[in-house]
Design a protein around this nucleic acid. Structure first.
Lengths: 347, 347
DNA sequence: CTGAAAGCGCTTACAG
DNA sequence: CTGAAAGCGCTTACAG
């Protein structure tokens, strides 16, 4: 198993120059005459030479690699949305000449796993990292930021924290929830329940807050027994609605779910209880998941652009790595109502 | 932006030993007395020390990283199946202590992109790599294998090539096609069309061959004008069936698509032409895509286990990297008929 | 414009 | 059982 084992010394010898000059050519330094450059390039190409990656890093170059860490207890394997986020980061990074090291964190309490994650930073395998699906306040992330590593976090908001190496992306959840409630209101709905998201993630409580504000703006009451807890997953949507149906005294005319996955689960539970959507109850989601247009009834939702978000976050992360200081470390995505079949006017 | 800059010299000094001993402790060598080991470990933990990754590689250690290369012209972003393959490899590698560097190849003819891909090998960024979606005979892959790099390829079959550093995975396509044709035959279908896959990929022609063999086994004729070309994507399924409907003289009673994505596209084209599935035509897929159970009509298909395949391939790849020679370099997944609603008996 | 030399942070024979 | 020293393959001041 012999690999191309040529190194810069060999190249230098064959080109009749010193390793310094070979290095200058590789790194495209200006102080090399055209003739010399060509002579060296020719040998490099002939031997398919590529400078050893580790050696470059040892002498101070960047890794041109970012870490992508997905926090997810559930099987990521089956969630097309989560998977799409990964590929989006990869494409965005690759466009900018960066490689992506991806890691899936099943359990942030597992010491072995977390050591691996931190080590990618400590060992200088990567120039920076992106975290998706983490709790709003996650000690190990704060530790990495405190240590000076460049870190991007999806869905985070910590009051007063704006270190230059912290890059954040969110959606305008307050606005999105208002759009949803406004629409339901316009259809005549006054009794609206909310399936709330994971309380540890920033968007969970923020969406709940947006729901509250929007309801109050219309003078509507928010019933605490109609705030159904969940954790953003299809399964949790199914289970909490199933349970809630058993204990609730009366039903609302509409349910606004914290995201579409939860709405899918809720729909399943409602169907099983012979409650028709949208006949008996209107159901609204949030995210505009890839499946939302395909299920029956097609889900009315709040569209957000994950693709744009991940692209922007990756871009800002790399900018921060390269220039250290950028204009804005924060991305806030807009929201838009997408009307389909799962909500109907109250008669 | 100061990072943890401690190195083995510092650790050695604080622990009152030499760097050699620190190294021995880190690498868990047996010739270190328990007392010394503990003394060193304590300092290591206290300072959150992790040996520099590049330095270890420079001195001969493995990178514990594999490359994952997805060849795909289409937007990977939207295909949940392709995305699932990626996460499966990541989870499988991570389980074995390996990291995954993922790269998406939009165009194998783009020199810049291909240079990047090859360089991950040449620069020794990775210990080996997996290719998904590549043509059966892809020169750059053959080149890497010839250079001695450990390479895993999904869906490849090259007669007589079985280098020790070539790891392959396939499904039993002949058997799968037979199961599908047998089922359609049992429903009374005699006039069956096939939407063929990408002719450059191994599974395309192999599935066509399986279709031929199965048809002939039943004494059925394979009409060349009922072999509809496609390239495995939803869009190509849609476009080729749309075009085929315009030119075909008569319709078959059943269509067997090379995979489910293509079947989705075909279904869309058939619906638009007011041809009812399964009322007017039965439609069978291959793969058992995540969406197949959800669409209407739910798609009858040939189930294959991509998750198991990618897990096995990743495992074999890593085995080959670590032990150089393993038992079997080849994985062949089984197929299974999954009956849903898109095929019905011929009356 | 160019080369000799130091340095990056490890691991590993080698010697004791 | 343990340390001094060489070596991995680059880059980069430094000197000319």
């Amino acid at each position: 198993m012999k690999k191309s084992e040529i190194n810069s010394t060999e190249i230098a010898r064959m080109a009749g120059v010193s390793r310094s000059t070979v290095s200058r050519v590789i790194n495209n330094y200006p102080n090399v005459p055209q003739a010399t450059r060509e002579k060296v390039m020719q040998v490099i190409e002939q031997y398919n030479y590529a400078p050893n990656f580790s050696a470059r890093i040892m002498s101070g170059k960047r890794t041109s690699t970012i870490g992508l860490f997905m926090v997810s207890r559930e099987e990521v394997f089956n969630d097309s949305l989560t998977n799409a986020l990964i590929t989006r980061v990869i494409e965005s990074a690759s466009k900018r000449g960066y490689y992506v090291l991806t890691y899936i964190i099943r359990n942030t309490k597992d010491d072995d796993i977390m050591r691996n994650v931190k080590n990618t930073f400590y060992q200088q395998r990567i120039d920076g990292g992106i975290f998706i699906g983490a709790a709003n306040h996650e000690p190990f992330i704060e530790e990495l930021i405190a240590d000076g590593f460049v870190v991007g976090v999806v869905d985070q908001h910590l009051e007063g924290r704006s270190e230059p190496n912290r890059v954040i992306s969110n959606f305008n959840n307050l606005e999105g929830m208002r759009q949803g409630v406004d629409y339901l209101y316009s259809l005549g709905h006054r009794q609206i329940a909310h399936i709330a998201g994971d309380p540890l993630r920033w968007s969970g409580p923020e969406k709940l807050e947006g729901f509250r504000q929007a309801m109050e703006a219309h003078g509507l009451q928010v019933r605490s027994d109609w705030i159904i807890p969940s954790n953003f997953s299809e399964r949790s949507g199914y289970q909490s609605v199933q349970h809630w149906l058993k204990v609730t005294k009366d039903l609302p005319t509409a349910i606004f779910a914290c995201n579409d996955s939860v709405a899918f689960g809720a729909l399943r539970a409602l169907n099983e209880a012979d409650i028709n959507v949208p006949g008996d109850i209107s159901l609204m989601g949030f995210d505009d998941h890839l499946l939302s247009a395909r299920i029956h009834p097609a889900l009315t939702s709040i569209h957000v652009d994950f693709s744009d978000m991940m692209d922007a976050l990756t871009g800002k992360l790399i900018e921060t790595i390269e220039v250290s200081s950028t204009d804005s470390k924060r991305y806030v995505g807009t929201t838009e109502l997408v009307i389909r079949d799962s909500c109907q006017p109250l008669r």
